[in-house]
Nucleic acid binder design. Structure first.
Lengths: 77, 77
DNA sequence: CGTGTAAGGAATTCTGACACG
DNA sequence: CGTGTAAGGAATTCTGACACG
């Protein structure tokens, strides 16, 4: 597996890199737009690809799309 | 900066990926062989390159080298 | 709908030290 | 020298809920 797909980054770092709040990041998961892994203790782990997706999601939301629509859009990638 | 150099991985994940103990990983830092970044709270963050280096260090140690010698060897990479 | 926040608990990490050999 | 471990504290993350609009 390429490094871009390795789920090794915790939410705090993702928040820093994307500039988004942890609340937003967790919400996108709730909406089935991203699928982080979990440590044994339940801590979320994201990949660099996830970070890319998260930023795309945010951009689309700013454009007026809803999460349900984004789910379809992301399905084709 | 390439993703391989982005310091975003915490010690627990590094431990899992390398199979080494956190104690060993912190010790290599103490010996000036690796240089993780820190979060505001003081939590260590490693890059994929750091993980590569850590595994090389461990291999060399198994070969009988000492950390002081490894410091010189790593300097030329 | 998408996001902010306060709340309490749990997982993770940190440092300095003692131990072994 | 390189690594294990127990100790206490601090940083980070988790969930479920209330709020707004």
């Amino acid at each position: 597996m390429s490094m871009t797909k390795k789920k090794v980054i915790q939410i705090g770092v993702v928040s820093e890199l994307t500039g988004l709040s942890e609340r937003q990041i967790r919400y996108y998961e709730d909406r089935k737009l991203i699928f982080p892994e979990r440590s044994k203790g339940g801590v979320r782990k994201y990949s660099f690809e996830d970070i890319q997706t998260i930023m795309e999601i945010h951009t689309k939301l700013m454009d007026g799309f809803h999460t349900v629509e984004l789910k379809r859009m992301l399905a084709g990638s």
